[in-house]
Design a protein around this nucleic acid. Structure first.
Length: 669
DNA sequence: AGACCCAGGTTTTTT
DNA sequence: ACCTGGGTCT
């Protein structure tokens, strides 16, 4: 087993070392892009354990994504060994809160077997709720929009925030605010009736629990003596509040972040948290990590030049001891198709002259729809590529169906799950029966399936659907028992379930082509495989445990590390590139309206757009290439484009310009 | 239940 | 221009 050695400390630069050995009291680490922040956090954890004799169980490290948590766990394991690393709590805010609630939500008068509502479930519920509240609300505002607004509200600690930029509502929509409160309330009651919590509730209920039951908070405080937070610039108000409560007793809170990389304020992140840290923790130490180990001097100079134009920031400048490197290339092209063709040719040129692999390249864009031309151009040229962040696995209908079955079995009151699968496959249970069932629910305060049972007993169901209802209810009862009795047989039980409901036949019937049916059945298989994997890995496997993991970790379904092993060019949005690095980065669509994006300029978010560009630039290790088009299709029409204002913020001597030929001149072969 | 049509919207995305 | 989703008609 590896032992913490002083060589580890010696290998750090001075501020990094400082951050590692400052273990007591509040600490803010301003970690510039590529400054070795993960290394600092993991070394700090190792230092606490090996040098300060802190119990691994007393350390909590919070990240924003499961991927980041996973990576951190691996790296801590390399430093202190698996045994100890396993005892450190490294998780996302949401899974940490879920753990708390699974144990103690009873205090709040809620059941412990609640299910988690996804975005989709929330919309289903909101559609029903707004329909019932009357037509006015549901006519004008989509469930998605309501949910976005509700989510923002929850993340501000239940208080109404100023009308957010993220929810685009005009001045004419003033009454929207009062409607919103109404919808919010009804939505919460509906969630409660469904014995469910949405993602934001995981945080919100934890907050409430700690506030109302100090003894619960105290026990958590006692356990975690050392708390660390990664990507602190992405915390929202509610998360900050949780951290404050959690560390109130010992104030051993170490937050690591970079205000210049805050690109999620549109979804509730409060970058002020990082700017105001010393206000809230007056005794805080602040350490800036400015030495960059990732990029060339040219790339850093360009990035510094750009970000220096922001006013709302902590002054810092990245530097490197490495050489200047190659100038940034800027291609000016006619339109998005030429952009893709030029990028393809330039990429092939670099590959020829440097022997780089495909995986060394990333094409970064502002919005997902920009990927199309590149996909076509690359496919044509036989360049392997992977588009990140397309349609989610969970968005596939058959996956949603199967998961809904599982959710309903784990939580009989789950309304969204019930509504999704009650007539899938068809059982002749139509709107009128469901309407009656809703009525029964309201009067009896029971679940929808119980309501169906009541209707059956009263003989109020149409004879046509009676058999279907009976079989449906029997199936639920049967499988609920089977899942409960056999945690290790999750996969087998689920296979039996699929057979029992005749789902494969339904898929075949509904699919247009045999290939489509095949693909859908394969998706079901992925879920089954995930079940097997879960049973293997879990200490005490259960259906609800599987669902928790599934809901909080998108990647749990995918074959792991798939993309890292394949030699492919990465196509992704700048947002999803955060935290990654590539030897060669292409940033495309550098036009006013595209980057910065038109919408966000209107909303006054120019500084966040600039940070976005900054993030894009600092992904590059060896070389960055920029692309600007003179015209681009927007809303279906060809539109002239001005160059991005950010281009002029890059010192001109760092740029090498390439041709501005007329489109027809550029096309060849 | 399924096909068809029209309206609306179209930045970024995790949990 | 294009896709999604909801509503309507058969």
């Amino acid at each position: 087993m590896p032992v913490f050695s002083d060589a580890l400390l010696a290998a750090l630069n001075a501020p990094q070392r400082e951050a590692v050995i400052t273990t007591e009291g509040p600490l803010l680490v301003l970690a510039g892009a590529g400054s070795g922040k993960t290394r600092v956090i993991t070394t700090r954890i190792a230092y606490l354990i090996e040098k300060q004799a802190a119990a691994p169980e007393s350390i909590l490290a919070v990240t924003f994504t499961n991927k980041a948590a996973e990576e951190m766990r691996v790296r801590v394991g390399e430093l202190v060994g698996q045994e100890k690393a396993k005892k450190v709590t490294i998780s996302t805010f949401h899974s940490f809160c879920l753990q708390v609630l699974r144990r103690d939500i009873g205090h709040l008068g809620r059941r412990r077997n609640f299910t988690i509502y996804t975005e989709n479930d929330a919309r289903i519920l909101l559609r029903r709720v707004t329909d019932e509240l009357g037509t006015e609300e549901s006519e004008r505002y989509s469930p998605a929009r309501f949910h976005q607004a509700i989510s923002l509200r929850k993340n501000h600690g239940g208080k109404a925030p100023a009308i957010s930029r993220a929810v685009r509502i005009s001045a004419a929509d003033e009454k929207y605010e009062s409607r919103l409160s109404h919808v919010y309330e009804s939505y919460q009651s509906a969630l409660q009736a469904a014995n469910s919590l949405d993602f934001d509730d995981l945080l919100l209920f934890t907050h409430e629990l700690w506030q109302r039951f100090p003894e619960v908070l105290e026990s958590v405080q006692r356990q975690f003596r050392y708390v660390m937070v990664d990507e602190y610039q992405d915390t929202n108000r509610l998360q900050y509040e949780l951290l404050r409560m959690l560390t109130a007793a010992h104030r051993n809170l170490c937050v690591v972040g970079d205000d210049d990389q805050s690109i999620y304020s549109w979804r509730g992140a409060a970058p002020r948290n990082i700017l105001d840290f010393e206000k809230d923790f007056s005794e805080a130490r602040v350490i800036a990590l400015e030495q960059n180990y990732r990029s060339t001097g040219v790339i850093l100079a360009a990035a510094n030049g750009v970000i220096g134009n922001n006013r709302e920031r902590r002054e810092k400048k990245l530097w490197t001891s490495r050489g200047a490197g190659r100038l940034c290339d800027l291609f000016i092209v006619g339109d998005e198709e030429e952009e893709a063709r030029e990028a393809r040719r330039w990429l092939e040129h670099i590959v020829r002259s440097t022997k780089a692999a495909w995986r060394d390249f990333a094409v970064l864009y502002r919005s997902n729809m920009q990927s199309r031309p590149f996909e076509l151009a690359f496919r044509e040229a036989g360049i392997p590529y992977k588009v990140f962040g397309g349609q989610d696995f969970f968005e596939r209908a058959e996956v949603k169906d199967l998961i809904s079955y599982l959710k309903l079995l784990a939580n009989p009151r789950d309304e969204a799950a019930f509504l999704r699968i009650v007539n899938m496959p068809r059982r002749g249970i139509g709107d009128s029966v469901l309407h009656q069932a809703h009525e029964v629910c309201r009067t009896e305060g029971c679940s929808l399936s119980k309501a169906l049972f009541v209707l059956l007993e009263r003989g109020q169901t149409p004879s046509r659907s009676e058999g279907g209802i009976r079989r449906f209810l029997y199936m639920l009862q049967d499988f609920r028992k089977r899942y409960k009795e056999n945690g290790h047989g999750l996969r087998e039980t689920t296979e039996a379930l699929i057979r029992a409901i005749g789902y494969a036949e339904e898929v075949e019937r509904v699919s247009k082509t045999p290939e489509q049916a095949q693909a859908r059945l394969q998706n079901l298989d992925v879920v089954l495989q995930a079940l097997s994997r879960y049973v293997e890995e879990a200490a005490c496997p259960s259906l609800s445990g599987f669902l928790d993991q599934t809901h909080l970790d998108n990647a749990s379904m995918e074959e792991r590390n798939h993309y890292e092993t394949d030699d492919q060019v990465s196509l992704m949005t700048i947002h999803s590139a955060k935290g990654l690095e590539f030897p060669f980065v292409f940033i495309v669509g550098l036009e006013d309206g595209c980057l910065p994006h038109e919408q966000s300029m209107k909303e006054g978010g120019i500084e966040e757009e600039r940070r976005l560009f900054y993030v894009a630039l600092t992904r590059g290790q060896r070389h960055v290439t920029l692309f600007q088009a003179l015209s681009r299709m927007r809303h279906g029409k060809e539109r002239e484009c001005k160059p991005s204002r950010f281009l002029t913020e890059i010192p001109a001597e760092l740029l090498r310009m390439h041709g501005c030929a007329a489109p027809q001149m550029m096309s060849r072969g």
